[in-house]
Design a protein around this nucleic acid. Structure first.
Lengths: 147, 147
DNA sequence: CACATGTCAGTTCGACTGACATTG
DNA sequence: CCAATGTCAGTCCAACTGACATGT
């Protein structure tokens, strides 16, 4: 099978990301989540009580981008927010029971897709892939912030 | 430096793709190109005379998505199209001299970014990365087409 | 007729910037 | 005053689907 046009990494990254979206989007649509919403819920599970600004940093996006995702999830009752005691301006988010259930269902779907996607790669290959992608991300992130 | 929240591959893919866009977008903006336009020109260089439908297939996107990119590049004179002799409905695209120059300039910028992004990875690591990403893409693409 | 191509139009998603109020 | 947070509003890119005309 042809890989496309070239081994160029940028091309491959885009292709994988697009294929991944194509697989995950419809799977999450059943549950009523978009990828961005899933990512937010996932990070919120890892960091209970995180603020909008916190979650934006975790996802490497602007806080304005996160506001809409957050608002929709709050509106549909998957999370609630209340003012921090320490700083009334900061709204800390928490998953609701409904949010926890939706996230769990979504994670099962996503993990199924992950399994398919990694078929044929050994554990050590997968580990190397993750390590190298993280290294690449850090180099690129240094580019924009550093110069 | 923390890598974020987890080693999850989907997360890393998205993060790399976003960081890559963040680096390439402004570099190409100088030249007056978007990433999609650059990708089209690049594929057109590899496949002179390709049609809109061809280029959509190379990029794994719908022909409708490609139409707008193509129209803009034709409008700004980076490519021209003329009807195929074999099939008048098919419009074959070719880079203009202006298009060739723009693409060359863009490629230099993109290659600089590639160099930075791969700093610290050996040639064999880069090769393994490309191989494994291609494998992952194929698995995912099989998912949507096959069921 | 079937089929591929090209196109227009509308929608969605997810990112961005600018501007502004609030809190500490 | 300054910095961080949260928000609204608008823009942009890039994908999608639906619908339709055209050419073989």
């Amino acid at each position: 099978v042809e890989t496309g046009s070239r081994d160029e990494l940028g091309y491959l990254i885009k292709r994988v990301q697009q294929a991944l979206r194509g697989a995950i989007d419809p799977a999450l649509a059943d549950i009523g989540l978009t990828m961005a919403q899933y990512a937010l819920l996932y990070n919120l599970q890892l960091h209970p009580g995180a603020s909008n600004a916190d979650l934006a940093r975790f996802a490497f996006v602007s806080p304005q981008a996160m506001v809409r995702v957050m608002a929709e999830l709050e509106r549909t009752g998957l999370l609630i927010r209340k003012a921090s005691q320490a700083h009334a301006r900061v709204l800390q988010a928490h998953l609701t029971p409904k949010g926890i259930r939706a996230l769990a269902a979504a994670q099962r779907r996503v993990e199924d897709i992950h399994k398919v996607m990694l078929q044929g790669l050994s554990t050590s290959r997968v580990r190397a892939l993750a390590t190298d992608l993280a290294a690449v991300a850090e180099q690129l992130e240094g580019l924009s912030s550093g110069g």
